[in-house]
Amino acid sequence: MTEAATTKTPAPQTETRGVLIRTRNLKKHYRMGDVVTEALRGIDIELYRGEFICVMGPSGSGKSTFFNMVGGLDSPTSGRVFIDEVDVAQLNAIELAFLRCRKIGYIFQTYNLVQYMTCLENVTVPMAFAGTDADTARDRGMELLGMVGLADRWFHKPVEMSGGQQQRTAIARGMANQPSILLCDEPTGNLDLRTGSEIHDILKRLNKERGVTIICATHDHRLINMADRIMWVRDGQVERIANRSDVTVQTGAIGGHENE
């Protein structure tokens, strides 16, 4: 634990960027009856504005719990999460909802589109929650759909679309309220290579053009390839953080880390 806390964080590529998310000794315990599972055992990490970071780790490593903490979906048992210097643990449920609505966009492995809504309606749902008026929401929704290349399919229901199209819609939805963070949970996990690369391109573009901070849990090495930094989580602790340039990405396996 202490070792992990003192793990040296490699400097970001761009020093000028400010810290967007910072965690301090972040711990999360789950209690199942008498058994206490320590999902996170103290994570100290700083994520910078505008960076593209991939989080890796085997199943049960605490990767998802970390994600939830960072995404304002769950509150830590102890320790703190600061998003834009705001302590998430201090927020009440409604403030959390506000945070999730405007500051963070979520991309899920299973897309999680609302089945009974059209493409455009799905995109405008977060805007409705943010109180945007219907006309603005529609215009911005169409613009976002244009960005992900689905402007001509706005009236389709999720079931009428391919996985790639659904995920693109999900990205447009995630961007609905121009969040500073895009939290992606295995965004290409359910997609084949070709469609996956469409998603990569969009994410890359968002990161580069709009300066959106992308936190991405993935095993897709092409996505890892695009990242600025890569973070490994194991047994509820950050095992290692490396700049992309320090890591060799090989087809089939990722070098360096495995070698340890």
Partner: peptide
């Protein structure tokens, strides 16, 4: 479940 949780991710309050 998933739809509700997604909605909450998207900014839906408990009240909603």
């Amino acid at each position: 479940f998933r739809e509700i949780a997604t909605m909450k991710c998207l900014g839906a309050t408990d009240g909603f």
